[in-house]
Write a protein that binds this DNA or RNA. Structure first.
Lengths: 149, 149
DNA sequence: GTACATGCAAACGTTTTGCAGCGAA
DNA sequence: TTCGCTGCAAAACGTTTGCATGTAC
């Protein structure tokens, strides 16, 4: 599934919001970079360099917020650092991230299915199976350290 | 298992650190409030009200950091807001965080044990079972929205 | 006495907010 | 024309750091 900038703008319009140059710029970057982990700062820089236009950071945050309200975008806080945004409709990219070296390991999606179902039955919580990051230590870093932190 | 303030201070001493009034105050709160999700700000307030003494926030952070180095304390980032601290010796639990309302649900660590073991055997990755949050929708928010499945 | 720890204050990175003017509808 | 949106600047937030003083050992 491919989301275009127009899809995003249409979602904003259907919320009764106006289509402005700033919102076009943000949506263009979000559509262009889909599949990546976007940060507000990264989007801001893209707009400045790729498009040469100037949009304020507060406007970027406000637009991302509107896109989240529309349900097309979600953000997560993966530990330290800025929040990361990605399209809700993106393909699953489940991975675990090494907190020491930053390496990402892909894991089979099905392996968690049973647990997700149990969690839903016991707590009502709907785990988002398409996107979450788990931290830990990759094989290399685990061998180098005694797990502590 | 009950951890006392002295356990914590002893751990600091064995790192070659000095026992000071500020560290006593922080350890007292951590020991007293075990089982709860502590924040740096909450610890600071406890010290001020419960004990009437004054400790600077930077000292609280530095002491918590030292306790983490000792391995007795861990912290997690549950999305928005401040980091939460809890004793390592406490019953391990995962945090599941609602991406809509930010509510955090604690779940027993054992429910993931099988999966963690499989992951270690297949990829060598050592999941840190206390330091990650899984995103999803809590029961309330899931009921309010139709999940874009 | 000598490191080390502290309080203070200021800096930090990320995000939010107040406001006057601009611009989409 | 109207009200929503914008840029700007400043504040808010949680956390970290530099430094002179204080204190455990």
């Amino acid at each position: 599934m491919h989301i275009t900038s127009n899809h995003l703008l249409e979602a904003l319009r259907s919320q009764g919001l106006r289509i402005t140059a700033a919102r076009r710029a943000v949506c263009a970057v979000v559509a262009e970079r889909q599949g990546q982990h976007l940060t507000a700062a990264g989007i801001l820089e893209d707009i400045r360099s790729d498009q040469g236009s100037k949009v304020d950071q507060s406007t970027v945050y406000r637009t991302l917020d509107a896109l989240e309200t529309s349900g097309l975008l979600v953000h997560s806080h993966l530990g330290h650092g800025p929040a990361v945004y990605h399209l809700e409709a993106e393909a699953a990219h489940q991975h675990v991230v090494c907190r020491a070296c930053g390496a990402a390991v892909s894991i089979p999606a099905e392996s968690l299915d049973g647990w997700i179902i149990i969690l839903r039955e016991t707590t009502g919580f709907e785990v988002d199976p398409t996107h979450f990051a788990i931290t830990g230590l990759c094989a290399e870093c685990a061998a180098r350290r005694v797990p502590a932190e």
